Amino acid sequence: MTIQKLISVFFLQLLCVHVFLFDRTNAQSLRVGFYNGTCPSIEEIVKNTTASFISQAPLLAPALLRMHFHDCFVRGCDGSVLINSTTGNQAEKDAIPNQSLRGFEVIDAVKSAVENICPSIVSCADILALVARDAVTLLNGPSWQVPLGRRDGRVSISSEALANLPPPFANITQLKASFRSKGLSDKELAILSGGHTIGISHCSSFSNRLYNFTGQGDTDPSLDPNYIVQLRQMCSPTDTTSNIEMDPGSATTFDTSYYTLVRARRGLFEADAALLNDNATRNYVLRQANSSVSNFFKDFAASMVKMGKIGVTTGNRGEIRTICSAIN
């Protein structure tokens, strides 16, 4: 059995054990303007600091969006992905699916700027949610009002990231199970997958589709053969460092071209191609491939708000971390 298949089986088994209970009571306690009385300049601080990084390195934007997703799918949106490992604990940040995360310096800089104005008031979890929104907007994507009031979690365990994050080679059954366990619908799976319209990936995340799909030196039949030829020119079988645009020619512009690519069997990951293997997700792909960007923007904004409410810690639970990478 290949390493990918072993991880896939491990993912499904642990998902059954760690099925997330979507806490609607806590989610409803979030609200837009939560810091109006305690830190009224929070959104301006976050936006300006985030923009200062993305203006210099636009590809940080998709990395920050991905970081928010990876945070929310493990223990809910509690900032646990930001915590560093210690001698006695390997944190989420060091789990295999998170070792390629980037942009922690942006979160640290935003947190420092916020602490200078509003010490011990704003959670790292809220900062990450705001940064993800601003990152999308800065690449000409939609904006949305972010309900705030999250508290930071005190637990971060590497194995839970592997158990809860769907891998890039997940099939449609695994993807639907993962999203449903977080209270997200099949349609929202297709919508949030549209975040792949920005960003890059390492060749190693999809090279098996080009060279050794079933262990017989073959290619993935769900991937356009002409695209395989192009990708092989950029990725050798052992390439682990080259970066490939997930949405060629549009990796720093938030638009609907991702769905056009998936329809044409040019989605970079198996998880992208898998969207065509289910009626609900396939219908959304086909509709957005022929739709105006405004429809997708509206759907994406609403889905991000919903995702940002997964399993939140609120009220007197958790803490407000002084430094996002360490528990107080």
Rank of each mutant, 00 (worst) to 15 (best):
I121A: 05
I121L: 03
I121C: 03
C124I: 05
A125L: 07
D126S: 03
D126R: 03
I127L: 11
A129I: 00
L130N: 02
A132Q: 08
D134T: 05
D134R: 05
V136C: 12
L139P: 05
L139E: 07
G141M: 04
P142Y: 10
P142R: 09
P142I: 09
S143R: 11
W144Q: 01
Q145H: 12
Q145R: 13
Q145A: 15
V146M: 08
P147Q: 06
P147S: 04
L148D: 01
R150L: 02
R151Y: 06
R154L: 14
R154S: 11
R154Y: 09
I157W: 08
I157Y: 12
S158Q: 13
S158L: 08
S159W: 15
S159M: 14
S159L: 15
S159Q: 13
E160G: 03
E160R: 15
E160F: 15
P166F: 11
P167N: 08
P167H: 11
P167E: 10
A170N: 06
N171T: 02
N171W: 02
N171G: 13
I172C: 04
I172E: 01
Q174C: 00
Q174V: 01
K176W: 02
R180F: 09
R180Q: 15
R180P: 01
S181E: 05
K182C: 10
G183A: 09
L184R: 06
S185C: 09
D186N: 12
K187F: 11
L189P: 02
A190Q: 02
A190D: 07
I191N: 03
S193T: 14
S193H: 15
G194S: 04
G195Y: 07
I198H: 01
I198V: 15
G199Q: 09
G199M: 08
S201R: 08
H202V: 10
H202C: 09
C203M: 10
S204D: 13
S205G: 00
S205K: 13
F206V: 08
S207V: 12
N208Y: 15
R209Y: 07
L210H: 07
T214H: 12
T214E: 13
Q216E: 14
D218V: 04
D218T: 05
P221M: 11
S222Y: 12
L223W: 11
L223E: 08
P225L: 11
P225K: 09
N226A: 13
Q230A: 12
L231C: 01
R232P: 07
C235Y: 06
S236F: 02
S236A: 14
S236G: 14
